[in-house]
Structures are given as structure tokens and as C-alpha cells.
Amino acid sequence: MKIAVIGGTGLIGSQVVEKLRAAGHEVGAYSLSTGVDVITGEGLAEALAGADVVVNLTNSPTFDDASPEFFRTSMENILDAARAAGVGHAVVLSIVGVDEIPDLVYYRAKTLQEDLLKAGRIPYSIVRATQFMEFMNAVMSWTDEDGTVRLPATPLQPIAAEEVAAAVAEVAAGPPLNGTLDIAGPDVIPLDEIGRMTLSARPDGRTVVTDDSAGMFAAVPGDALVPKGEAWIAPTHYRDWLT
């Protein structure tokens, strides 16, 4: 099978490419660095020529009001190129609970991306993942001031990036879901507790204070970021990943 991975040089994309190639597929890894621009459309026709599947792992460079236009333009350009090339399956990586958090513009933008894919007249699959374990330290840095990290007690179910890549690769190599697959790590942990676990395993002098008004995740209602119902549960626990 010939598979084009757009955003194929990033944290998830590079691992998806590696896993698909190891499984015997013909895989192209594309990004701005390889001459493919999803905003102008440059290089997309060449990248998708002869492809059976396109995997879209591109991401907005910002989380602000510019993100909806990024996801709209990039999704429309990829779908246009995929239809012209006769691609039979389009895959997108999204976020668990993304349509339940309208107060965050980035989450509204990702919901828009999903909606465009569903309406795009190409068989599709959406893989919704929970927050990556690799990003937890960055999340802590958003509310770090003078050695104190303020975090809300928002329930999360973090997953390792390698396991996200494995799920995306498996879906890309299979038949279209024409629906959504939720994937998550094995444990539901409040974000403030994730911060304490992180600093216990990797102490750097900072401390965590619970503050339900702090940072982006303060806008998350209840357990919106935790899968409801059936989901694919990865095996790696956050505490084990830290060590």
C-alpha cells in the first residue's frame, strides 16, 4: 500500500512513517522541509500522486485565533489534492473530547478540521488521542512563575507518543473507519497530580500548587478530555514512562 504522511517529520509523524515502513508499506514523509506546504498547496499533488492513503498530522503553529484558518485551509487543500489523486482513505489525528470544549479556540479549530474531513467525500478515519506524556513538562511551563507551577485538577488520561503513532499507523493500514477511534493511556490522573508526579521523578526545585483557574486546561469542563465509552487503551503508565 502506498501511504502519504503529511507532517511526516514531527514527533508523531516520524514514528508513524517508521512503523508503516516496517510493516512493508511504501511511505512518503512530507512537510515544509520536504517542499510540501499545506497552506499554499505547493507540493501536495506530487506528494499524493498514486497514494492509496493520506495521513494528515500537520498542526497549527499557534493555539490562538489564527488556528481555525490554518486547519480550514490545510484540510481543504489536502482534501482537494486527495480527490484529484483518487486517494481512497484520509486519516486525521485529533483530540479526545475536542468538540466538548468550545471555550478554547484551538479545540474549536480542531473540531472544524474534523467536520471538514467528514464532509470531504473521501472515506476517512479520525483518531482522537488524549494528551501526550511528552508534552506534560511543556504544559507545566505555561503556568510556571518563580519556581511555582499552578495547575488545575483537570482529569487527564495521558498517552505515550509512540503508542499514538502505533494506533495511527494501524488505522492508516486498515479499512476506513468512517468514524472516530478514541485512544488513551491506562490511568486517569488530575493534571496537578501529574505535575507532582513529574517533579517527584525529575526534581528541579519547582513545586506544584493546585489552581483551578490556571492555564489553558482550566477551561476544560469536568472530565471532557477523558474518553467516554469504548476506547483503545495503551499499556504504558505515566509513572513508568517517567522512569
Rank of each mutant, 00 (worst) to 15 (best):
I126Y: 03
I126G: 02
L116E: 10
V92F: 07
Y124N: 14
Y124W: 14
R121Y: 00
Q113N: 05
D99M: 12
L104S: 01
S125P: 12
Y106H: 09
P102C: 03
M140H: 02
M136I: 12
G97W: 08
A129E: 02
P123G: 11
V96W: 03
T143P: 00
D115Q: 15
Q131V: 08
M140G: 13
G147F: 11
R108I: 04
S125E: 06
I122C: 02
T111A: 11
A129G: 06
V96M: 05
R108W: 03
T130R: 02
V105A: 08
N137T: 07
V105N: 05
G147Q: 05
D115K: 14
L112G: 02
Q131S: 04
T143M: 06
K118N: 09
E134T: 10
T111S: 02
M140C: 08
M140V: 01
D146Y: 12
Q131T: 08
M140F: 01
K110C: 07
V105D: 04
Q113D: 08
E145L: 10
V96P: 00
D144K: 10
K110Y: 07
E134S: 12
N137E: 14
V139I: 15
N137C: 01
L93V: 02
K118A: 12
E114T: 15
R128M: 07
T111R: 02
D115V: 13
D115H: 11
P123Q: 11
E145D: 13
I101G: 00
D144M: 13
I126R: 08
L93H: 05
D115M: 08
Y106P: 09
G120S: 09
M136K: 03
T143Y: 02
D144I: 07
S141V: 01
L93G: 01
D146C: 08
L93F: 01
A129S: 15
I101S: 00
V139T: 12
N137M: 06
V92I: 15
F135N: 08
T130A: 01
L116T: 15
V139D: 09
L112R: 13
A129F: 09
M140P: 00
Y107M: 12
K110R: 15
V92D: 02
L112T: 14
D99R: 14
E114P: 05
V127N: 11
V96R: 10
T130S: 04
E100R: 15
R108P: 04
L112M: 13
L104K: 00
S125V: 07
R128N: 06
R128I: 14
M140L: 09
L104H: 07
M136Y: 04
Q131A: 07
F135C: 06
V92P: 00
I122L: 09
M136T: 10
V98K: 06
Y107T: 13
A138T: 03
L104M: 09
L116P: 09
L117K: 06
E100C: 00
R108T: 08
G120A: 14
L93Y: 02
